[in-house]
Amino acid sequence: MSREHEWVDEEAGPVVRPYAVARGRTKPASSSALDLLATVASTGLPVPAKAELSGQHRRLLTAVSGQTRPVVEISSDLGLPVGVVRVLLGDLLEHGLVTVRPPRDKAVTATESLLQEVINGLRAL
């Protein structure tokens, strides 16, 4: 039996409580803002020898490998509470294994009226 399935019982679900996954921590070690809509990407760097990564850390790294995803989506896919994912991401940030970008400011995003103007301009060509 692989270690990945060691913590799951088919009928009962996860056997390990979320606070145990986060090693009793409730806040990430890094000071980076890990907003729900912040996007996370793997840096592709190898895991340092000094890093003590759990199976959940490795699952999280796999979830962001080759793509950029929001924190809330990662949490949903892994079936872990957002608070736990933030703690795990903080660990990965400390080791330089992921990058986190804050969510885009609403003032910077295009409005529907602006997009409509672009469409109209393209049609006029």
Rank of each mutant, 00 (worst) to 15 (best):
T109Q: 05
G55H: 04
V85T: 09
V85D: 03
K106T: 15
E112S: 03
S54I: 04
Q56S: 06
G90T: 07
L115W: 09
E117T: 01
L37Q: 04
Q67R: 12
K106N: 14
P70D: 02
L97D: 11
G44F: 15
K50T: 13
G121W: 01
A38F: 00
L34G: 12
R86G: 11
Q56N: 07
L122V: 06
L60E: 06
L60I: 12
G55M: 02
V98L: 00
V108H: 10
P70L: 04
G79L: 06
V84R: 11
T68R: 08
K106E: 06
L36A: 12
T109N: 05
L78M: 06
A124P: 03
E52Q: 11
G44N: 11
E73P: 01
L78Y: 12
D35G: 05
V108C: 08
E73G: 12
A29S: 07
S31T: 08
T43H: 09
Q56G: 07
N120G: 03
L125E: 03
L34V: 12
E112G: 04
L115P: 01
P48D: 11
L97A: 10
D91I: 11
V71T: 03
A51P: 06
D35Y: 07
V108E: 01
R86K: 10
L89T: 13
T68M: 07
D91P: 05
T39C: 01
L53P: 08
T68C: 09
D77M: 04
P102T: 02
L60H: 13
K106S: 14
V84A: 12
H95I: 07
S32L: 09
L125S: 02
S75M: 13
R101C: 04
L97N: 07
